[in-house]
Design a protein around this nucleic acid. Structure first.
Lengths: 247, 247
DNA sequence: CGGGTCGTTGACCGTGATCAAGTAACGTGG
DNA sequence: CCACGTTACTTGATCACGGTCAACGACCCG
């Protein structure tokens, strides 16, 4: 399989030019594959955390089951993402991970990072940078939850997904639409809402002319107005990794 | 200044035994110091992000000013923390940072991480691990905000601070108390509440016998009951970094 | 055709926001 | 050391958003 077909390489290449050696290093990481069917669990809260994953294809979701029966969705994972690194320092999984659609993962042991650091230090740094950006994305979500109401929360999520998916699929930009394989309950569990308020919010977003919906496909009609409405910042732009080469 | 006095070394040593070489590597990072007075800004949203910091002493806080005049506190920084790394991959600061009390920082350029990766790869990995744990902490906050009410949110924050401060100051555990140099408005801005509900929540926590307050000092009376109440998980325990040495 | 999941709609209610007034603590200068 | 002004905290009244409960409708699959 040619290197160029690696989603992870593709994601990294958005930000730096990879050398042949680095391409090979990544290809080695993706040697093994694991196929996950829809609704299948990759791991469960409390499991011993030994691996990280690179998402080759599909959609996955990390979540926690709370004591009172509620659920908190922590993160969504798309092709090209690294995931499962929340427990890099911890013995046990702090969340469970489930596939929302049939997916393919490349598992790698935590120690692969040690190796990576020695052999291709630039990649190791890049991963560090990407983790830190993921942190910014989660803070964005936190802010949306803490400081805006249902409508804005839902709109923020849709905008985030639009921009995230556009990175690996330019079609999203040209058509303005993307598939959203999440139930409204799941969206609610991500945003601290109930399925009811998600339903109301999405209807209202449609009525206001921001989006249209067709089954599970969402189309943005007024992207710019939408971004303005929630003061959306695209963290996938504005990258600057020049520090990696100057040492 | 002897290496052992470095807060950062102390934090790292909690999890791995550092070699002399590694101690020296850290000491080099902390060569320069910058003193920050109370209420002084370290950097502001939109600034070009060129540095990271290690907190030598004090309390600092990262926050964002929202369009509508609200504020979102993103993170608190204590002695031994690394901070300012949210923008590792980004050109511009996504938040501002201010000192809550007189503080001392050690600034280091982003490129120091590149150097660190080459010279003391274990430390680089450790930093990576710590960043990922910070991510877990922020997810914990997100969960508290999204899925619990005012009383529980405030209690969660107090418990977090108790355990965080205990890492560097054993006195916190023996006395059960710590200083909280935050106004209730600031606490509200962290938890998505108003100063009013924070006030009510703290009064109620006192009435219920979880804590007592004396000025800005908080004392836990019923620590275990409190942890149970919010299902608090101490992320500063349960560390496992064995993967760092096996490569 | 029938069972199940998912989404929509409506009625009611509770938590916390908002507004406002009053109290306590702090810092500054006389 | 006190008088003053400022900031922080407390308390109460009102209101709105979203939760809860429930029923219904749409779509999917066997």
């Amino acid at each position: 399989m040619p290197n160029s077909s690696s989603c992870f390489s593709k994601m990294l290449s958005v930000y730096v030019d990879l050398t042949d050696e680095e391409h090979e290093g990544i290809a080695r990481l993706e040697k093994t594959e694991r196929t996950i069917g829809r609704d299948e669990m990759v791991f469960t809260e409390g499991d011993v955390a030994e691996e990280l994953y690179i998402v080759k294809s599909g959609w996955l979701c990390s979540f926690r089951n709370l004591e009172d029966g509620q659920r908190q969705v922590v993160q969504l994972h798309h092709p090209g993402d690294m995931c499962g690194y929340h427990e890099l320092m911890l013995r046990q999984r702090t969340s469970s991970m489930v596939a929302l659609v049939d997916s393919v993962l490349c598992p790698l042991p935590k120690s692969a990072l040690t190796k990576l650091g020695r052999e291709t230090p630039r990649i190791a740094l890049l991963i560090e940078a990407i983790v830190s950006r993921e942190l910014v994305a989660i803070v964005d979500t936190l802010q949306a939850i803490a400081r805006s109401q249902a409508l804005e929360r839902v709109l923020h999520l849709l905008l985030f997904l639009y921009h995230r998916l556009a990175v690996i699929n330019p079609l999203v930009v040209t058509t303005g639409n993307f598939r959203l394989p999440m139930t409204q309950s799941l969206i609610g569990d991500m945003l601290g809402l109930t399925n009811v308020s998600v339903s109301v919010a999405m209807k209202e977003l449609e009525r206001m002319g921001f989006i249209t919906r067709e089954r599970r496909t969402v189309t943005f009609i007024e992207l710019e107005k939408a971004k303005e409405r929630v003061d959306f910042k695209d963290r996938f732009q504005d990258a600057d990794l020049s520090f990696i080469d100057t040492a």
